[in-house]
Simulated assay, not measured.
Amino acid sequence: MRLDEDGVRRRLTPARVARLATVGSSGAPHLVPITFVVDGDALLFAVDHKPKTTTALQRLRNIERNPAVCVLADEYDEDWSQLWWARVDGQAAVLDDPADIAAAMRALQGKYEQYRERPPHDLVVRIDITAWTGWAASSS
Protein backbone atom coordinates (compact mmCIF):
# COMPACT_ATOMS: atom_id res chain seq x y z
CA MET A 1 0.00 0.00 0.00
CA ARG A 2 1.19 3.51 -0.78
CA LEU A 3 2.20 5.54 2.27
CA ASP A 4 1.12 9.12 2.83
CA GLU A 5 3.51 11.65 4.38
CA ASP A 6 2.55 10.65 7.94
CA GLY A 7 3.17 6.98 7.14
CA VAL A 8 6.58 7.80 5.66
CA ARG A 9 7.46 9.89 8.74
CA ARG A 10 6.40 7.08 11.13
CA ARG A 11 8.75 4.64 9.43
CA LEU A 12 11.64 6.92 8.49
CA THR A 13 12.05 8.84 11.76
CA PRO A 14 13.02 5.89 13.99
CA ALA A 15 15.07 4.10 11.29
CA ARG A 16 18.69 3.71 12.38
CA VAL A 17 20.27 3.86 8.92
CA ALA A 18 19.31 5.07 5.46
CA ARG A 19 20.95 5.41 2.06
CA LEU A 20 21.81 8.80 0.61
CA ALA A 21 21.79 9.11 -3.17
CA THR A 22 23.63 11.98 -4.83
CA VAL A 23 24.57 12.61 -8.45
CA GLY A 24 28.23 12.60 -9.41
CA SER A 25 29.88 14.96 -11.89
CA SER A 26 29.55 12.32 -14.62
CA GLY A 27 25.83 12.01 -13.95
CA ALA A 28 26.26 8.63 -12.28
CA PRO A 29 24.45 7.97 -9.00
CA HIS A 30 26.48 7.79 -5.79
CA LEU A 31 24.93 5.87 -2.89
CA VAL A 32 26.18 5.71 0.71
CA PRO A 33 24.68 4.69 4.05
CA ILE A 34 24.05 7.47 6.57
CA THR A 35 22.88 7.90 10.13
CA PHE A 36 20.41 10.75 10.33
CA VAL A 37 17.65 12.53 12.18
CA VAL A 38 14.36 13.89 10.84
CA ASP A 39 13.76 17.44 12.08
CA GLY A 40 10.39 18.75 10.93
CA ASP A 41 10.55 19.00 7.14
CA ALA A 42 14.30 18.46 7.06
CA LEU A 43 16.68 15.55 7.40
CA LEU A 44 20.10 16.08 8.98
CA PHE A 45 23.25 13.98 8.83
CA ALA A 46 26.84 14.55 9.86
CA VAL A 47 30.24 13.48 8.63
CA ASP A 48 31.20 11.48 11.68
CA HIS A 49 34.26 9.81 13.16
CA LYS A 50 33.88 6.44 11.43
CA PRO A 51 37.11 5.75 9.51
CA LYS A 52 37.40 7.65 6.23
CA THR A 53 40.43 8.56 4.17
CA THR A 54 39.32 12.22 4.07
CA THR A 55 36.47 14.52 5.10
CA ALA A 56 36.43 15.89 1.51
CA LEU A 57 33.88 13.22 0.68
CA GLN A 58 32.36 12.49 -2.72
CA ARG A 59 28.86 12.98 -1.30
CA LEU A 60 29.77 16.53 -0.23
CA ARG A 61 31.33 17.37 -3.60
CA ASN A 62 28.23 16.00 -5.32
CA ILE A 63 25.90 18.10 -3.13
CA GLU A 64 27.95 21.21 -3.89
CA ARG A 65 27.54 20.60 -7.64
CA ASN A 66 23.95 19.34 -7.54
CA PRO A 67 21.95 19.69 -4.31
CA ALA A 68 19.14 17.36 -5.46
CA VAL A 69 19.31 14.23 -3.29
CA CYS A 70 17.26 11.24 -2.26
CA VAL A 71 17.28 9.31 1.04
CA LEU A 72 15.82 5.80 1.38
CA ALA A 73 15.24 3.63 4.45
CA ASP A 74 13.64 0.22 4.34
CA GLU A 75 12.77 -2.83 6.37
CA TYR A 76 13.23 -6.37 5.14
CA ASP A 77 11.72 -9.35 6.90
CA GLU A 78 11.26 -12.97 5.88
CA ASP A 79 7.60 -12.31 6.67
CA TRP A 80 6.90 -10.22 3.59
CA SER A 81 3.81 -8.72 5.21
CA GLN A 82 6.29 -6.64 7.28
CA LEU A 83 8.17 -5.08 4.34
CA TRP A 84 8.26 -1.32 3.85
CA TRP A 85 10.32 1.47 2.34
CA ALA A 86 10.31 5.21 2.97
CA ARG A 87 11.93 7.81 0.73
CA VAL A 88 12.43 11.54 0.85
CA ASP A 89 13.64 13.77 -1.95
CA GLY A 90 15.03 17.21 -1.33
CA GLN A 91 17.64 19.89 -1.66
CA ALA A 92 20.81 19.46 0.40
CA ALA A 93 23.28 22.00 1.74
CA VAL A 94 26.24 21.85 4.09
CA LEU A 95 25.47 23.95 7.17
CA ASP A 96 27.81 26.81 7.94
CA ASP A 97 26.07 28.66 10.77
CA PRO A 98 27.52 27.54 14.15
CA ALA A 99 24.11 27.72 15.87
CA ASP A 100 22.52 25.51 13.17
CA ILE A 101 25.40 23.04 13.43
CA ALA A 102 25.09 22.90 17.23
CA ALA A 103 21.32 22.30 17.02
CA ALA A 104 21.83 19.54 14.46
CA MET A 105 24.48 17.90 16.64
CA ARG A 106 22.10 17.93 19.64
CA ALA A 107 19.39 16.30 17.52
CA LEU A 108 21.79 13.62 16.26
CA GLN A 109 23.11 13.00 19.78
CA GLY A 110 19.53 12.57 20.96
CA LYS A 111 19.06 9.69 18.52
CA TYR A 112 22.50 8.04 18.58
CA GLU A 113 24.34 7.19 21.79
CA GLN A 114 27.57 6.89 19.79
CA TYR A 115 27.36 10.60 18.97
CA ARG A 116 27.00 11.46 22.66
CA GLU A 117 30.13 9.44 23.43
CA ARG A 118 32.09 10.80 20.45
CA PRO A 119 30.53 13.82 18.72
CA PRO A 120 30.72 14.01 14.93
CA HIS A 121 32.90 16.49 13.09
CA ASP A 122 31.38 19.90 12.46
CA LEU A 123 30.29 18.92 8.94
CA VAL A 124 26.51 18.68 8.92
CA VAL A 125 24.21 18.46 5.92
CA ARG A 126 20.60 19.61 5.97
CA ILE A 127 18.18 18.26 3.40
CA ASP A 128 15.05 20.36 2.95
CA ILE A 129 12.50 17.70 2.08
CA THR A 130 10.34 18.37 -0.98
CA ALA A 131 8.67 14.96 -1.36
CA TRP A 132 7.73 12.08 0.97
CA THR A 133 6.99 8.73 -0.67
CA GLY A 134 6.79 5.18 0.55
CA TRP A 135 5.20 1.79 0.47
CA ALA A 136 4.30 -0.85 3.04
CA ALA A 137 3.01 -4.36 2.66
CA SER A 138 0.56 -3.75 5.48
CA SER A 139 -0.77 -0.84 7.51
CA SER A 140 0.80 -2.04 10.78
Rank of each mutant, 00 (worst) to 15 (best):
W80V: 14
V23H: 03
D100M: 02
T53H: 10
A28V: 03
G40S: 10
P98W: 12
R16T: 10
G24K: 01
A28R: 15
R87N: 04
R11N: 07
D48C: 08
T130Q: 09
D128T: 15
R9P: 06
P119E: 03
L31N: 07
T133L: 13
D100E: 15
Y112N: 05
D39A: 14
D97A: 15
A104F: 09
S138A: 14
Q109T: 03
T22H: 01
D74G: 07
W84C: 09
F36E: 01
D48W: 09
I63F: 07
E75M: 05
E113A: 13
D41C: 02
L20Q: 06
A93N: 00
D79I: 09
R10E: 15
P33T: 04
L31P: 01
P14S: 09
A42K: 02
R2H: 09
A86P: 10
A42T: 13
L20E: 03
P51R: 08
D39P: 01
L83H: 12
V17M: 14
V17P: 00
S25V: 15
D6C: 03
R106L: 11
A104C: 08
D4G: 14
F45N: 01
V69C: 13
R19Q: 10
R87Q: 14
V23Q: 10
H30F: 04
E64G: 09
H121C: 00
H49P: 00
R126W: 11
T130M: 02
G24H: 04
P33M: 09
D96A: 13
V8S: 10
P120D: 02
T133W: 06
E113H: 08
W80G: 05
I63L: 08
R126G: 12
V23C: 13
G110V: 10
L12C: 05
R2N: 13
G40H: 12
P119M: 00
W135F: 14
D100V: 01
R61E: 10
A15T: 05
D122G: 10
V37P: 00
R61H: 14
T53P: 04
T53R: 06
R118V: 12
V69N: 08
E78G: 13
D6R: 15
V37E: 07
A28W: 13
S138H: 08
P51W: 00
R87P: 00
P67I: 07
R87S: 12
A86C: 10
P14N: 11
L95K: 04
V8Q: 06
D41P: 05
A18I: 07
D96W: 02
H30G: 08
D128H: 14
G24P: 06
Q82W: 05
G110S: 09
R116I: 12
A18K: 03
D6W: 11
E5H: 14
E78L: 11
E78R: 13
A18V: 07
L95H: 06
V23Y: 02
V124P: 07
E78F: 04
V17N: 02
T35V: 09
V69M: 07
R106F: 00
P119K: 06
R10F: 04
L44V: 04
R11T: 05
D89M: 03
V47S: 08
L83G: 00
W84D: 03
A131C: 07
K111R: 14
V38P: 00
V23F: 02
W85K: 01
R106E: 12
Q109V: 03
G90T: 05
T22V: 08
T130R: 10
Q82D: 04
S25L: 04
A46I: 06
P14E: 11
